[in-house]
Write a protein that binds this DNA or RNA. Structure first.
Lengths: 252, 252
DNA sequence: CCCTCTTTGTTAAATAATCACACTTTAAAT
DNA sequence: ATTTAAAGTGTGATTATTTAACAAAGAGGG
């Protein structure tokens, strides 16, 4: 019981690199904070993790990252995004060709994705760097102007990338959604890029954490009927779920 | 004085592996605890240390534990590369438009570059991420297939990026140089990319640390006469320096 | 079934880190 | 050289995290 839990903690930590105690508590609701603390203490003694203020980080993580800051802001709704990423990761099959956007959720997805032989196109450079650690994944970065807020690129020229490319799958996320305005984002060119991706992709999977619902951003790039599967978290409202299912969209 | 103190802290930390804030206070009685905290914070952002409760520990220390891959490539001639990067950073002026390659030296350069209004094109995603921290720099990433060993992209399609683009400057580095074979690298498509860059760039500055001299890599992308300035370190052999200066190339 | 050892939970106290503000030094511009 | 702006620093109050001590609950052996 203890041993197993500790192993599991070590495993999760290796995958995510860094976790707060709060996140661990959610992951292990059966035990108290103090117990988790003691587990972390033991793992530290074994030299497998390093305890930092507020949580812990995996030693492996430290060993691989070079210039990147470990302190990078703990983003909003992290937990929901990880849940979504884990679901999405199960959808990636051997040999597939897929497009992944550059958002935070895609970032988590790229950590969860198995190291299988497949082709991934992305416009997110943080996503690309994360994926670069998987030996078997073939990565193509869509170039263009870099937006500093979300570390993703886009450019009108990117079109040329897609002319002779087809995707089995596009897994993207939006920063806002309402039934009337559909899926929207903050950048005109990113919106254009996604529209193009949608045309080339055979299936479109949308990752949408529930905090995005009811918000509207300037540029709509898709409507309900444009997607095939919606991947979301447990707080997703039932009435919205019904709405999607009416349009034959799988909600998971 | 801040810079020096931070360097000193990093040095001590590298040496001792781990220190408490209290120890640091004794080491630096001239400044307050808060200042030291802020220094540690900055070092953490730079990825050189990890802050732990009560103090900090050096990343190198952690890496040593089961030290592997990371230390391999990044450590080769680091000091020379930083010197070169610092020299190169002085060459970037306000409003300029420049191309930067994706190599390790470019990575250091992007840390040193001042945060001024300018346009930088690069095919290195680690470089792009580093540059993203500067508010005023406009970054464009050249897309393409990602090479996992050096985190840079290239693709035949990248050509389209350059059709309507001009660079004042291209600052690149080679992985090998001999007078006969010129500047060479390990990848065919990267070599192609650089050739294109050279055509569009008004001036070409080559960063070459002395460890590259006398080596030959498969793909030559430039010869002595193709560059305008050579930026190198103090170990650069005199006879080579003379060689470059014969061709009216500034060696700095 | 009882005893004992390990694991776990609960609290209060100690410790460390953050924040916000004011002050000081350094650098830049004219 | 003088003024202005920017970067760096110190202080005290505030907030958050960790530790430590002790009590309760399980698990296994005799």
């Amino acid at each position: 019981m203890k041993r197993e839990r500790i192993e599991e903690i070590a495993e999760i930590l290796d995958k995510r690199g860094k976790m707060t105690l709060e996140q661990l508590e959610k992951e292990f609701p059966a035990v108290s904070q103090m117990t988790l603390r003691r587990d972390l203490y033991q793992l530290e003694e074994d030299g497998r993790i390093i305890r930092i203020r507020g949580g812990a980080m995996s030693v492996k993580e430290v060993q691989k990252v070079s210039g990147e800051a470990y302190t990078k802001k703990t983003t909003i709704n992290t937990d929901a995004k990880i849940v979504i990423a884990q679901k999405a990761a199960t959808l990636v099959d051997e040999g597939i060709s897929l497009f992944l956007d550059g958002g935070t959720t895609a970032m988590y997805l790229s950590k969860e994705i198995p190291d299988i032989n497949c082709n991934i196109f992305t416009n997110g450079i943080a996503v690309a760097m994360e994926l670069a650690q998987k030996k078997n994944i073939n990565i193509t970065v869509v170039g263009g102007q870099l937006m500093k807020d979300n570390l993703s690129t886009s450019s009108p020229v990117a079109k040329s990338y897609f002319e002779s490319t087809n995707f089995e799958l596009a897994i993207v996320s939006a920063t806002a959604f309402t039934p009337e305005n559909g899926f929207s984002c903050n950048s005109q060119i990113e919106s254009d890029l996604l529209k193009q991706v949608f045309q080339k992709a055979r299936h479109v999977y949308m990752m949408l954490d529930s905090s995005k619902i009811g918000k509207i951003n300037p540029y709509t790039f898709a409507h309900i009927e444009d997607i095939d599967v919606l991947i979301t978290d447990d707080n997703f409202p039932k009435e919205y779920k019904a709405l999607f299912e009416q349009s034959n969209i799988v909600v998971m």
